[in-house]
Design a protein around this nucleic acid. Structure first.
Length: 119
DNA sequence: GGTTTGACTTGAA
DNA sequence: ATTCAAGCCAAAC
């Protein structure tokens, strides 16, 4: 009986693929929704497999500080640039407003809160 | 099997 | 405000 349970990796990728443009999710959030709270590091490890992939919006995943965690990998500049193109505003310190940019899968319902996206 | 690492998180100094 | 340290879980060796 193979539990029809998808792997942790598969769940994280599924969530990332559902992040709408202009919105972001944190690693800890992905791990929690994937069913493993605390596995934030592992969530980032999964995304590492997609860095540079244009099929999945990996760019919309940032850390809890509202900053991109890809700076040491060399993708930081690219990620901030891609998010900025979607309407995400980064502070001079490289931080964005998670309060308004953080997306939760429950928001995909019929009721979508007003997005202060100022293009 | 155990060991090591990692796109993290939180709390304290 | 920033820096340091410990905790956490999943995959790779």
């Amino acid at each position: 009986m193979e539990g029809g349970e998808a792997g942790f990796r598969t769940r994280v990728l599924a969530l990332v693929a559902r992040i709408p443009p202009g919105r972001v999710m944190t690693y800890g959030q992905l791990a929690m929704l994937a069913g493993s709270p605390g596995a934030a590091r592992q969530a980032g490890f999964v995304l590492g497999s997609l860095a540079g992939s244009d099929e999945l919006p990996w760019q919309r995943v940032i850390n809890a500080q509202g900053r991109v965690s890809t700076h040491k990998l060399g993708f930081g500049d690219l990620q901030e640039r891609l998010l900025t193109a979607e309407g995400v505003v980064f502070d001079a310190s490289g931080r964005c407003d998670l309060g308004t940019r953080q997306w939760w899968p429950e928001e995909e319902g019929p009721s979508t809160p007003p997005e202060p996206l100022l293009f």
